[in-house]
Amino acid sequence: MLDDRARMEAAKKEKVEQILAEFQLQEEDLKKVMRRMQKEMDRGLRLETHEEASVKMLPTYVRSTPEGSEVGDFLSLDLGGTNFRVMLVKVGEGEEGQWSVKTKHQMYSIPEDAMTGTAEMLFDYISECISDFLDKHQMKHKKLPLGFTFSFPVRHEDIDKGILLNWTKGFKASGAEGNNVVGLLRDAIKRRGDFEMDVVAMVNDTVATMISCYYEDHQCEVGMIVGTGCNACYMEEMQNVELVEGDEGRMCVNTEWGAFGDSGELDEFLLEYDRLVDESSANPGQQLYEKLIGGKYMGELVRLVLLRLVDENLLFHGEASEQLRTRGAFETRFVSQVESDTGDRKQIYNILSTLGLRPSTTDCDIVRRACESVSTRAAHMCSAGLAGVINRMRESRSEDVMRITVGVDGSVYKLHPSFKERFHASVRRLTPSCEITFIESEEGSGRGAALVSAVACKKACMLGQ
């Protein structure tokens, strides 16, 4: 009897593995994704193909990295998701002549009506938060230079001027797309009239992360975010950046690689679950690469896999709870928690219980395998993109072996128990001629924006502006 049951459990697990095998990517698959990513990057950089390229390769006008001589107080704003952060950054000489960066910050959550109302409502709310922060720190009387981390696709015309191309991540505030974001912020500050600010720089969160990590390690020339969304930036040779005049030196390019796949480059790798996630998203047909990796989508992918296993009578005796059938019910943090389970399955059992399920031991094991399959594919897909960037940098610099540091931020990278190990191992397999160091950014977005502002202020002083 026991043997029969054991055989049935083994057969069930084997069927589960057959279904989950769809998520496995072979090294040849990853090399294919990497080569296609490089081709799209090239198209994004070139003037004649930029418009139709899915990977936009947006110039950021960040050319210099901090040298350690900029000092002063800077205000930093960070808008990239449902939370908005205001930070005071003091850049100065530390002990023994070292450079020191001290920060104080406060988080504000953005109400739904500000995210989806008008641009005026959104930026009025942001300036209200700045006003509140300055009151708390008794700094209303000071006109501070301000660095703005704005983590949406922007076409820069200068370091302090950028046109919002399109909202992502659930934002829909009308009247912002096609307009200068810094102008919208300046107008809102003017409307309030109770404080003055000098907006000197606007950067993407990947750029802010790279600059913040450069402060720790001067070989950091790539910034990457794996959180709600997924994106990367890197220092490109100016001669390859056709959208900006000049051939000397390097400029940081914001790849906006989340949109890779929007022209069909990933079609052969998309599964039924991916198509369902895409169809029910706020932007169907867009940001397809990001939807395979980002935390906004990972939990939902797992939920759809679990429903398939229920329908195949391989999980929960073929019956799903009402909660499990509800879109968004299986949160991405559950994926991390399930994979963090120590082996007694308590954590998995508790999560499934909150979803109205009474799982068996085998159910718990199957749910864990589903989570591992989805998150491992995410790590491997992400590795193909980064390997594409790094191999490109090595080739354009004609280096036999390139040493490089990548600064990384984002909740999936930082909080998932195995993502970074799987990701690092896969990147290294795909970049055999590179020695890569990964560092995690601390308060990256805010500190990085302030350091970019410090560079901009120093330049302005040198130019006598």
Rank of each mutant, 00 (worst) to 15 (best):
A11P: 01
K13Y: 11
K13P: 12
K15D: 11
Q18E: 09
I19F: 14
E27A: 07
E27P: 15
L30F: 13
R36G: 04
K39D: 06
H50M: 05
H50A: 04
M57P: 04
L58N: 07
P59Y: 10
V71R: 15
V71H: 15
D73F: 12
D73H: 15
D78F: 01
R85L: 02
V86P: 04
V86S: 01
M87A: 09
V91H: 02
G94D: 09
Q98Y: 03
V101H: 08
V101L: 09
T103V: 02
K104A: 08
M107H: 06
Y108S: 02
S109I: 06
G117M: 04
T118M: 02
L122K: 02
E128A: 08
D132F: 03
D135C: 10
M139A: 04
K140N: 02
K143D: 04
P153H: 03
V154M: 03
V154F: 03
R155K: 00
R155C: 04
D158I: 01
N166P: 00
W167C: 05
T168R: 06
T168S: 02
K169E: 05
F171G: 01
A176L: 01
A176H: 00
E177H: 07
E177Y: 06
G183W: 00
L185E: 02
G193P: 06
A201R: 00
T206P: 09
T209Q: 00
H218V: 14
Q219H: 14
V222S: 03
G229L: 03
C233L: 03
Y234H: 02
V244T: 15
F260L: 10
G264P: 00
E265K: 08
E265P: 02
Y273F: 15
S280G: 08
N283S: 08
Y289V: 06
K291W: 03
V302K: 07
R303F: 00
L306F: 08
R308A: 06
L309N: 11
V310W: 12
E312M: 14
L315A: 13
R325M: 09
A329H: 15
E331M: 00
S336Q: 06
S340E: 13
D341E: 11
D341R: 09
D344Q: 11
R345P: 13
K346C: 10
G356H: 14
L357I: 14
I366W: 08
R369N: 11
V374G: 03
A379Q: 04
A379E: 04
C382T: 09
A387F: 00
V389Q: 02
I390D: 02
R397T: 05
S398N: 13
E399C: 12
D400P: 04
R403G: 12
D409R: 03
Y413G: 03
P417K: 13
F419N: 06
E421F: 10
F423P: 07
F423E: 10
T431Q: 12
T431E: 13
P432K: 05
I436Q: 03
T437P: 06
F438C: 07
E440F: 11
G444S: 05
V452G: 03
A454D: 01
V455E: 06
K458H: 13
K458E: 13
K459S: 15
A460K: 15
L463P: 14
